[in-house]
Write a protein that binds this DNA or RNA. Structure first.
Lengths: 233, 233
DNA sequence: AAATCCAATATTGTCGACAATCTAACTTGA
DNA sequence: TCAAGTTAGATTGTCGACAATATTGGATTT
C-alpha cells in the first residue's frame, strides 16, 4: 500500500533530518494523508522520504510524545484512532487551560494587542458578511483568535502544550469529521465577549466566558459525532 | 567527568533497551544524580549503560518530549535548568488542570473511593501526630492525595499529562530546593476540605478549593525560592 | 473443514562505522 | 598582549548490516 506523501523531502530547512521527517510526518498525519489507525512501516517510509531508518525512528518517537502515534514494542507504530471519548477529554483540557490563558491574558495583555484583536474580530465579521459559506476560517494561522489568547498568557509551558500537542490532535479530528462549527456568528459573538472581558481586565469573567465558549463547542462536537456514528450504523 | 549513575542496567525489564534507558535516565535526572544544566554526553552515557548510541538517542528524544532535557542540533542535550519562572508556570498549569480534575472527581468518584481517601487522610493525620518531622510524606506514591484525585477524573489525557510530564518536573525541583511545605497541617486541612466538597458532589466548590490550595503552594514556593536566591547573592 | 503447528518471510531493535559539525587549543599577526 | 584564523580533536547525525521478534502462509492432524 502506497501512502500519498507530498514527495521526497522537497526542501529540507531544519538542521537535522530527524526534525524534518518529524515535521513532515506530523503534517501528513494531521492532514489525513496518512489515515487514522494505519500502520507506520519503517522500511516503507524510509524509502519514501529517502532517509535511513535511524532518523525516521527518532521522528516516530517524537510523534509518540506528541500523541499522534502509538507504539508497541517489536510490533511498530500506528497512527492514533480518534474516538469520541478522546476528543471530549481533549476539549475538557482545553477548557481548563484556555480558560486559564484567558484569565492570564486579562492581566497582562497590552492595550495595543487588545486593539489588534478587535481589528481581527472585525475582519472575521467582514468575512462572514461577504462570504456565504458558513466557515469561520480560523484554521490555526496567526488569525486564530484562540491562539492569540493563548500566546497572550505568556506562560511558555502552557503555550507549548496547547499549540504543539493538543491543537495538532484537534486539527486532525477536524479533517475527518467535517464539523465546522454550526453557527459561526454565535462563535464570533462569544469571542467578542471574551475580548471585552480581557480589555476590562476582568480575569474571572474572561475565564468563565472562555470555558463556556469551549464547553459549547464540545457539546456541538459530541452531538455531531454521535449523529455521524448513528448514521454509519 | 563521571556522572554518578546507579549502575550498568542492573535489571532490564522493559521489552526494549530504549525504554529502559529512558526510564533510568529520567529517574537519574529527577533524583538529581545527573545535575541540572549538565550536558548529556552520548558516548559517555552509552558506555556507562553498556548500550550503543542508537537506543540511547531514542531515549533522549523521549526525555525531550517529557521536558526533562533540551536539545540543540549538532550540539547535544542538556538537563533542563529550572528557574523560578518555569516553576510558577508549571504551578499555574497544575492549578488549571488539577482544579478541573477535582471538579470531574466530584461528579464521578464512587462512595467507596471517597471513603478510601478519608482513610488516607486519617493516616496522614496520624503520621503528622506521631512524627515530629514536619514532612507531609506524599512523595508521589499511591498515598499521594493529589494523584488520587487526578486519577479519579477518569480523563486519560489529563492523567497522563499531569503524572508523566508535569509531576516529574515538580519532583525534580523538590530535590533541589529542599522546600517541603512549611505548614503540612494546613495542607492536610485543605485536603480535607477538598474531599468534603467531592463527597458532596459539589464540583464548583471542589475546583475552587483545589485551585486555592495549589495557588497557596505556589505562593510559598515563590517566597522560598526568592529567599534562597537572595541568600545566594 | 477447521484448528494447530511450523517454517519462511518481513519488520523491528540494536550495533558499529563513517560523515558532518562543533569545540578547543594552538598559531599567527597586529 | 590580545584578537582572529586555523587546525586537531571530539561529538553529533546518518547510514547500512545483523540479531531478535512478530507475522504470514502453508502443511499436518483430527
Amino acid at each position: 500500500m502506497s501512502i500519498p506523501v507530498s514527495s521526497h523531502l522537497v526542501s529540507l530547512r531544519s538542521a537535522t533530518l530527524s526534525e524534518d521527517i518529524a515535521q513532515q510526518l506530523s503534517s501528513a498525519i494531521v492532514k489525513g494523508d496518512i489515515p487514522q489507525g494505519s500502520k507506520i512501516s519503517e522500511p516503507e517510509l524510509a524509502k519514501q522520504y529517502g532517509v535511513s531508518r535511524g532518523p525516521l525512528r527518532e521522528a516516530i518517537v517524537k510523534l509518540e510524545g506528541l500523541g499522534l502515534v502509538t507504539r508497541t514494542a517489536n510490533v511498530g507504530a500506528r497512527v492514533i484512532q480518534l474516538n469520541l471519548q478522546d476528543m471530549l477529554d481533549t476539549f475538557t483540557m482545553r477548557e481548563a487551560l484556555e480558560g486559564m490563558a484567558a484569565r492570564l491574558a486579562a492581566d497582562t495583555m497590552p492595550a495595543s494587542e487588545v486593539n489588534n484583536l478587535y481589528d481581527l474580530l472585525d475582519k472575521h465579521q467582514a468575512h462572514l458578511d461577504d462570504n456565504q459559506d458558513e466557515h469561520y476560517l480560523q484554521q490555526g494561522g496567526n488569525d486564530d483568535f484562540h491562539l492569540r489568547i493563548i500566546h497572550a498568557s505568556q506562560n511558555a509551558k502552557l503555550i507549548r502544550l496547547l499549540t504543539e500537542e493538543l491543537y495538532s490532535v484537534i486539527r486532525m479530528y477536524r479533517r475527518h469529521t467535517a464539523d465546522q462549527r454550526s453557527d459561526p456568528r454565535q462563535a464570533l459573538r462569544e469571542h467578542r465577549a471574551i475580548l471585552d472581558a480581557i480589555a476590562n481586565h476582568e480575569g474571572d469573567l474572561a475565564e468563565l466566558l472562555m470555558r463556556r465558549h469551549i464547553s459549547r463547542a464540545s457539546q456541538l462536537l459530541k452531538q455531531a459525532m454521535e449523529h455521524s456514528e448513528r448514521a454509519s450504523h
